[in-house]
C-alpha cells in the first residue's frame, strides 16, 4: 500500500480516537465511544501491516496472538471490583511497550539526530516510570501480602529528586552521545527506581488518581515514540491521551476533594484550597 494511503488511514484513526474519547464522557454515548476507539485501533493496526518497513509477519502474528489471548483472558476473568488494578497493569504494559519500541529503533540507528535522541530519552524515561509506577499501583490495589511488609522510602521526596536528576543527566548524556546505546538502558534502569519511589508512598485510597496520572504518562510515552518514528498517529493519539489524562486526573482529585500535590507528595487529609482552583 502506498505511503499516502497509510497516512490517510492513520488520519481517519486519529479522528475516530478523538470522537471515541468524546463519546466516553457521556453516559448515553459511552459504549459507542469505546467501540469507536476499538475500531480506530483495528484500522491503525491493519494498515500498518501494509507498511513497506514490515517485511516478515511471523513474529508479528506470534506477538498479536499471545498478547491478544492474555489480554482477553485477563479482561473476561477479572472480577468487577478488580477492574482498577487491571487497568493499572494494562497501563504499565502499554508504557513499557513504548519504551521497547523506542529502544529497538535506537539500537538500529547509530546517527540519531538531536530531536530524535531527545524523543528517545523521553520515551525511555516516561514509559519505564509508567511501568514501575503502574506495577506498584497494581500490587497495592490487589493487596498482595508482601506489599504490607514494604515500607515507604525514608526521605522519599529527596530520593525522588535525586533519581529524577540522575535520569535527566543520563538523558543529557544520551543526547550528547547518540551512538552509545548504554545510556538508554541506564535511563530505563533509573526510571524503574523512580516510578517505584514516586508511587510506593501513596496510599491505596489515592490509587485511582495515580492510575489516571500514569495513564496520562503512557500517552506521553507513546507520543514520544511517535517523534522517534516520525509517526503521526502515535503523536496524535499519545498526546490526546496524555492531555485528557491530566484533565481527568484533576477532575478525579477534585471529586475526592484532594489536590494533586497532596496526592503525589503524601499529605494526609483533604486539602483546604482544592475548590478555589477553578
Amino acid at each position: 500500500m502506498n505511503r499516502t494511503w497509510i497516512d490517510l488511514a492513520y488520519l481517519v484513526a486519529a479522528v475516530l480516537f478523538i470522537f471515541g474519547l468524546k463519546g466516553l464522557t457521556r453516559p448515553r454515548t459511552a459504549v459507542r465511544g469505546n467501540l469507536t476507539g476499538a475500531c480506530a485501533m483495528l484500522l491503525a493496526v491493519i494498515v500498518t501491516l501494509f507498511d513497506q518497513q514490515v517485511l516478515t509477519f511471523g513474529t508479528i502474528l506470534t506477538g498479536i496472538v499471545i498478547g491478544g489471548a492474555i489480554g482477553a483472558l485477563f479482561a473476561t476473568r477479572v472480577k468487577m471490583e478488580q477492574m482498577p488494578e487491571m487497568v493499572a497493569l494494562f497501563n504499565g504494559f502499554g508504557g513499557v511497550a513504548s519504551t521497547l519500541v523506542a529502544g529497538a529503533e535506537f539500537l538500529r540507528t547509530d546517527d540519531a539526530t538531536t530531536d530524535v535522541a531527545i524523543a528517545t530519552a523521553a520515551s525511555g524515561l516516561i514509559g519505564t516510570v509508567t511501568l514501575s509506577g503502574s506495577l506498584v499501583a497494581f500490587a497495592k490495589l490487589a493487596e498482595f501480602k508482601f506489599m504490607k511488609k514494604v515500607k515507604p522510602l525514608p526521605m522519599s521526596n529527596i530520593v525522588n529528586g535525586v533519581l529524577g536528576l540522575v535520569a535527566l543527566l543520563l538523558c543529557g548524556l544520551l543526547v550528547a552521545n547518540p551512538a552509545t546505546d548504554t545510556y538508554y538502558w541506564l535511563i530505563v534502569l533509573v526510571a524503574l527506581g523512580l516510578g517505584y519511589s514516586l508511587t510506593i508512598a501513596i496510599g491505596g485510597a489515592d490509587m485511582p488518581v495515580v492510575i489516571a496520572l500514569l495513564n496520562s504518562y503512557s500517552g506521553l510515552a507513546a507520543a514520544a515514540t511517535g517523534f522517534v518514528l516520525q509517526n503521526n498517529v502515535l503523536i496524535i493519539s499519545g498526546s490526546l491521551v496524555g492531555a485528557s489524562g491530566i484533565i481527568l486526573t484533576m477532575i478525579m482529585c477534585d471529586a475526592m476533594n484532594r489536590s494533586l500535590p497532596a496526592v503525589l507528595f503524601g499529605t494526609l487529609g483533604p486539602s483546604a484550597d482544592t475548590k478555589s482552583a477553578d
Binding site: 471515541g20 464522557t25 491503525a44 507498511d51 487497568v87 502499554g94 493519539s237
Partner: peptide, 26 residues
Amino acid sequence: LHTPLMSGSNAISGITVVGALLAAGA
C-alpha cells in the same frame, strides 16, 4: 464514568502497538 474513561483512554494509549509492529516486522 471516571473509571471507564480512564480505562478507555488507557486502551487508546496502546496505539504504540503500531510502532511495535514496525519494530517486529524487520
